[in-house]
C-alpha cells in the first residue's frame, strides 16, 4: 500500500485516496476555439510513461483536496507531492 504525503494532512495510506490519472492534462479554456484534434487529444490522450509520472490523487477520505504526486511507475517510489495550485518542477 502506497504511503502518500498529502501536503495538507501529512503521510497517509493509499486507501484514503482516489487516483486521478495524468496531472499534466490541460483543459482547453472555456469558450476558446479549439480544433477537433486538439479537443480529442485533451479528452483521450494521456501521458503514460515508464518512470517519473506526475499524477493526480484525491484525498477523499481526508481533506478532500486534489493533490499532484510525482511517482515512478516502475518502482512506485514517490518523489514529491504538490498542492493542486502549486507549480510543479
Amino acid at each position: 500500500m502506497l504511503y502518500i504525503f498529502c501536503p495538507h494532512c501529512g503521510s497517509r495510506s493509499q486507501n484514503e485516496f482516489a487516483y486521478g490519472g495524468d496531472a499534466t492534462v490541460k483543459r482547453p479554456e472555456l469558450n476558446k476555439e479549439v480544433s477537433d484534434q486538439e479537443w480529442d487529444n485533451f479528452v483521450y490522450l494521456r501521458k503514460s510513461p515508464r518512470g517519473k509520472h506526475l499524477e493526480l490523487w484525491h484525498h477523499i477520505s481526508g481533506c478532500r483536496q486534489w493533490i499532484k504526486v510525482e511517482r515512478d511507475t516502475s518502482t512506485h517510489e514517490i518523489f514529491k507531492t504538490y498542492k493542486a495550485d502549486e507549480l510543479t518542477e
Binding site: 500500500m1 502506497l2 487516483y19 511507475t73
Partner: peptide
C-alpha cells in the same frame, strides 16, 4: 491496482 504502473508487483489492499 488503480494507478499507472509498469511494475508487475502489486499491493495487498
Amino acid at each position: 491496482d488503480g494507478y499507472n504502473s509498469y511494475s508487475q508487483r502489486g499491493n495487498l489492499p
